[in-house]
């Protein structure tokens, strides 16, 4: 069932959520960086920017996840599990961010191995998404089967701005319904006409997305293009930093390391890693199957739009366009994969 809520009341709901749980929402700092940060009051919420500089991914899939503590003593070794994750709310992310969680969910539940650090945290996370009114020149979410400025995949609750400062609120999961039922006084029931208004919103918003890629055709081109001379030149501007991978809502590669405090105490930590890094695939002894920059550049795009599709039947990308903006040399993922020959 759909509901209506005003912008003022959204802030009331936000305050109610802040009182009960940890709420992360876009917040702007002195350097104009908009990041998902812990809110103390709804007034800190910065809803004007389309996208935050980094994704909300790091709230569930932490950049450095402490797996467990290891204590050595004369009797041997004890492994101490971390505390259970707390309930959190990610408020005000965009449909592309929310869909990113859906994409990574599949990875962490892949085959027989379920990553419980991620799944436990995900189970305690409520995602409240706001549809995009003004997509930017870097957006290309409509290229994906499930992508659209009003898509609900991955969201528990989706808010779509309508006329007169009202928002259409649609819950897609129990967690989303609970947000509404707990704060029912701020919501009013929506009528048929409002559902139609959402359709109009969708059409208008999608029209602003200037680029739509034919990903099926691109995948067909990619399969035989592994040895293509195309890769020889296209990677040249790339400086091989990890900005694109770290701001991506779907990039998931990680490394497991140990952080030693002293001789007896240490901690196993999982940290994000990037396929752009030279040491990503370097083996002990120095052999590196992806030694040169061309190979690493190719791996990133091949993984996202070819290999991942083979394994999961969907691309490892949601079309948010953050990598395009974050790239110090403005490499455009759309141009890179479109140009494959």
């Amino acid at each position: 069932m759909a509901y209506l809520i005003t912008k003022e009341n959204i802030k009331e709901v936000l305050n109610a959520l802040i009182a009960a749980k940890t709420v992360y929402a876009p917040k702007k700092d002195a350097e104009d960086t908009v990041l998902f940060e812990k809110l103390v009051n709804a007034s800190e919420w910065h809803g004007d920017s389309l996208l935050t500089h980094t994704t909300a991914k790091d709230k569930v899939y932490l950049q450095s996840e402490r797996f467990f503590k290891i204590k050595k003593d004369k009797n041997g070794v004890t492994i101490e599990d971390p505390a259970e994750p707390e309930e959190i709310v990610i408020f005000g992310c965009r449909p592309c961010d929310a869909r990113g969680f859906d994409v990574i969910n599949k990875l962490f539940n892949w085959s027989d191995f379920v990553d419980e650090y991620y799944t436990k945290r995900m189970a305690k996370t409520t995602i409240i998404t706001i549809s995009c009114e003004k997509p930017e020149s870097t957006c290309f979410c409509t290229s994906f089967a499930k992508g659209s400025p009003v898509n609900e995949t991955g969201s528990d609750l989706l808010l779509t701005p309508l006329k007169d400062g009202k928002y259409l609120a649609e819950a897609y999961t129990e967690k989303g319904e609970k947000v509404i039922s707990d704060n029912l006084k701020y919501f009013s029931e929506a009528a048929e006409t409002e559902a139609k208004e959402k359709e109009a919103f969708k059409t208008a918003s999608e029209a602003k997305i200037i680029k739509k890629l034919d990903l099926a055709a691109i995948k067909k081109l990619m399969e035989p293009a592994f040895e293509s001379a195309y890769w020889e030149t296209v990677h040249l501007p790339c400086v091989k930093c990890g900005a694109c991978t770290f701001v991506c809502p779907t990039c998931y590669c990680f490394d497991i390391t140990e952080k030693a405090f002293d001789n007896m105490n240490s901690e196993r930590v999982r940290s994000w890693d990037t396929c752009m890094s030279e040491i990503f695939t370097r083996m002990a002894g120095g052999v590196n199957p992806r030694s040169d920059t061309k190979k690493r550049f190719r791996q990133r795009f091949m993984h996202k739009f070819n290999y991942h599709v083979d394994n999961f039947k969907e691309e490892l990308c949601t079309g948010c366009g953050r990598c395009i903006k974050a790239c110090p040399v403005s490499i455009d993922v759309r141009k890179v994969i479109e140009g494959i020959k």
Binding site: S64, V239, G242, A243, F246, V247, T257, D273, A326, P328
Partner: peptide
Amino acid sequence: CYACRNVCPVCYCPDCFALRSMPEYLSKH
């Protein structure tokens, strides 16, 4: 993400201290 280091024209060391593991100045943490 090391964007600052990688766009720096004078940061051209092939084996940056940040990537070395023996001795390890910076872990991935």
